[in-house]
């Protein structure tokens, strides 16, 4: 369990900074095709924003449904990535050959571009969830103590 931080300066600053960090993470994620960045970095920045909010505003990891189920997102990220590959196979091509995504009205290069965006979202989701889940795991002290006492 992580308690909320006592200082009002930290809390006020957190309210201001965390949205900026999240927006920047999304920007890095979707700007990865045009400049430095991409799924991995964007995911880490998004995860860092969430970790910051957990550290500032506190989180009761032992009782929260989110903390218990956050790891499911890991599988969802993998499923997005591998699912795009599977869709390419359904479209009649090789695994992860985005040119075979069955989307009408798009030329080959744009299909590849779309495939890159989708797989980057998968990577970002995976990285974010892993980072947040490790922090929750490190703060899950109460669970062990409860089970020893009871």
């Amino acid at each position: 369990m992580i308690r909320p931080h006592d200082s009002i300066i930290v809390q006020t600053l957190g309210r201001f900074v965390i949205p900026v960090v999240q927006i920047f993470g999304l920007y890095v994620l979707f700007f990865g095709q045009y400049g430095p960045g991409g799924g991995f970095v964007g995911g880490v920045i998004l995860g860092a924003g969430m970790i910051l909010s957990v550290l500032i505003f506190g989180h009761d990891a032992s009782r929260s449904q989110v903390a218990r189920n956050v790891l499911h997102g890991d599988g969802v990220g993998m499923m997005i990535y591998a699912g795009v590959g599977g869709l390419c196979m359904i479209g009649g091509g090789e695994f992860l050959n985005y040119a075979n995504l069955e989307i009408p009205g798009l030329e080959t290069a744009s299909r590849r571009s779309l495939g890159i965006v989708l797989t980057q979202i998968g990577v970002a989701l995976d990285v974010t969830v892993t980072a947040v889940s490790i922090v929750f795991s490190l703060s899950a002290e109460e669970i062990i103590e409860d089970s020893i006492n009871g």
Partner: peptide
Amino acid sequence: THTPNVVTSVLMDYRSLDTMVET
């Protein structure tokens, strides 16, 4: 790929399988 950043296009398209295993 219509992707100006060559690093991203190599990572996510030409070498996509490697990136998947990294994930």
